[in-house]
């Protein structure tokens, strides 16, 4: 399988619209419900991506680790 590099340049067709929908998805939820929604969302997106290398790059970027950290991942 061809491994993709994580896209970190602008890639969303409607940034403002998506951001609004992301926040709207949490409307009326408690902190615990929002945490649960976020976890479900991450799992759904991770499965959609399905590329371990891209996911590891995303994990490293989210942890504010540089690209070197991602290369050391198992």
């Amino acid at each position: 399988m061809k491994m993709a590099k994580l896209i970190t340049t602008p890639n969303l067709p409607d940034p403002d619209g998506f951001y609004e929908e992301l926040l709207a998805a949490h409307d009326g939820l408690s902190k615990a419900e929002s945490d649960a929604l976020n976890a479900r969302l991450i799992l759904l997106l991770a499965n959609h991506i399905g590329d371990l290398q891209a996911l590891r790059q995303a994990l490293a970027a989210a942890r504010r680790e540089g690209p070197e950290a991602e290369l050391k991942a198992p």
Partner: peptide
């Protein structure tokens, strides 16, 4: 626990 429950829920 949040992730575990999310997996089960999905």
């Amino acid at each position: 626990r949040i992730f575990r429950d999310a997996v089960l829920d999905l």
